[in-house]
Design a protein around this nucleic acid. Structure first.
Lengths: 220, 220, 220, 220
DNA sequence: CATGAATGAGCCTTCATTCAT
DNA sequence: CATGAATGAAGGCTCATTCAT
């Protein structure tokens, strides 16, 4: 309830958490190098030395931020996407796309998952390795099984893999290239509704492609 | 008369150019903030004060680098892509995709256009506005005319626009998410041949989607 | 009832002692300023705040370390050096030199007396005053009485005092200038045997000087 | 004439020199670790960044200080000590002792050679290696030839070496243990006159020892 | 009583920039 | 015109110390 967390009993964990959330914001906004420990601590109402005390150094804090950001994203958008067991491939694809879009565009004050990942793409840190294994590979598998379901059992593995990437690329694009798309089409806003429409389009485009490709495969 | 004459008479312009090329490299590799004027000058065999002398300040140099990088990319990969006037839409799409991929993956010492753009996506500078108008909007128009050619005249404008983005997203993806794809599939190398195959897949996927969508439109 | 009980009942005094011994080592190795309370506490398996709790502050700990180090040295090398009452002046001189050498080169884990004193020479603290009175003055008197015994009753007081310092200086030298002597003569090791030989030489040199000076005095 | 050296043409070299002299003082007074770049720069009327600009870092400055301090000592107290070629061994010994004492007690504002060396004894840095080779080994040789001259050709090499150290130790002692001697004998001041008397005593003591030892050798 | 958490001053270093030459 | 020298702000980090528990 008070501004200074030191009055609460759990001030240790509380300060730690505040630091992580503040850092997520600052790292997302400025990048690792340009982010300053001082700014992060100021946002968290903590002392300059708090980062070194709790996380060893700036890098340690960053690693913790990435972990936390991933955990948040997973909790908020669980990998099964709340689908029924017997959902059709089409429904699964739509759900996957929709959930991924939401996850990536979530700028909630606690995570900034999308922005942090975008920065990892440009300047990968050691944290990326585990991130790929823990988060991205499972999702890639999930998507590939959907794609295979749609392409049929005769599709070569490579086609499945590449088509999966074609689907994901469309999702990621709107986040990554937002500065360009917003300049190209200023009317475009990423409201909840717009994201829904986006999901519709990506699903439609991808389904069309996959169905047609499936048909092409049978023809051969 | 001085002890250290600047090699040649044209050293002024030459130094300027060397600075820009060195800076392109460093900005691409480290980002604007983390790039240091000292490193740039060292690479260009120039004095520490040279940047401020030639470009006013670090930002001025950065703007010049972006301009130069765009100019290089345009010269190397001209917008018409060397197509004949009467080429089919399919051929045009393939050419567009292929040229774009090449352009984005060109890490030539003089440009680093792809990496610089990637960084602009995450932290847009003032330079992005003109970049969008001069480079991206024309390309977007070009692509949209191709897409419209494939979707047919009845397709709503928005569908054309979004489908264009679906095509571009697939191209951009492999560059932007390279750190992830390389970790997911370590065998994947972006050799010339691989880029060709990539272009084939993106073209195939996109054509399949567009044709199927065109069919869907007619059915209605 | 607490989760981490402090091992034993006597942990208070035990921790104190552990701190002193750890501090002796660290202060000797790094010097007062460069020694960090954290390192000392870590070596003593104690909390960071333990130093301030037990000794007020870093300086308080240091003072206690010096006291302890002196006490240890005294116990191990008692001032009478185990000589018989009726030993000759020559024997006394030899015993004094030998005992002093041993004391100064003792790097036992509990004392580091020599190194600590060396540092006091360079940056005297308040503790030095009492150290001089309690330790050095008695030893100086002891040595001077030996020297007077050898120089004879006619020797002026100042000659006695200075000759005493000439003796002590030879002893101290090998400890203080060890880094240099070891570089000059790499073979030189301060084994027990070597220290014995050292004592022999210093005794021989000093006795020769004192006898000759005594003869010179009588001649006048 | 002005406080700010930037008005002089040679401000670069001037600032450098001022920094070295200020640093010599501060390093001698506080030791390497405890000395602060800020204090050094303040004393030299220079900016905090000046040290890094001129010497790379604190260690670089320290190395330069040691070099400079050695050069000063050499210029002021040249190794030949201004003796005539045919001087007797006794005269040479006296000159050596006197010159060494002066050198070690010189607290001139430019060098602080003695104090810096004392600190090197306690915490040797990389610089000590070359210092030993360039300065101490030549002096040790010089002294040993004098000692051999006095002990005669029959003296074993080791006796010569150790006797040399016995001489040097007496010289060094008064500087190194000054805090103790001054507390033991507060009247003792290291005025020019006192240093002369010190030289007399050390010479007398050493000559007495060497002559007596030479006699002992012959007797055998 | 004894301690884990938190503090703020201080450290060295790097930086883009400016100035006199 | 072009540059080497110098600047001061800001960076991350370590430190001895304090305080509530």
């Amino acid at each position: 309830m008070s501004a200074k967390p030191s009055q609460l009993g759990s001030s240790n964990a509380a300060t730690r958490q505040l630091l992580i959330e503040a850092a997520a914001h600052v790292f997302a906004e400025r990048g690792f190098k340009a982010a300053s420990v001082r700014e992060i601590c100021a946002r968290a109402n903590a002392n300059v030395a708090a980062v070194n005390y709790h996380f060893g150094d700036k890098e340690g804090l960053y690693a913790e931020v990435l972990k936390y950001s991933l955990r948040c994203a997973r909790e908020k958008y669980p990998p099964d996407m709340g689908l029924e067991r017997d959902a059709s491939w089409e429904a699964r694809l739509r759900a996957f796309i929709h959930a991924f879009l939401l996850r990536i565009f979530d700028d909630g004050p606690q995570a900034c998952h999308g922005k942090l990942l975008s920065r990892e793409m440009i300047e990968p840190t050691n944290a990326l390795d585990s991130l790929v294994e823990e988060e991205m590979r499972p999702m890639a598998h999930q998507l590939q099984s959907i794609v295979r379901g749609l392409l049929g059992p005769d599709a070569p593995e490579e086609t499945v893999r590449r088509s999966g990437m074609s689907v994901i690329s469309q999702i990621v694009f709107y986040h990554h290239c937002r500065p360009v798309t917003q300049r190209l089409y200023p009317k475009m806003q990423f409201s909840q509704k717009e994201i829904d429409r986006l999901a519709d389009h990506i699903t439609e485009f991808s389904l069309a492609a996959l169905k047609q490709m499936s048909r092409n495969l049978k023809r051969k």
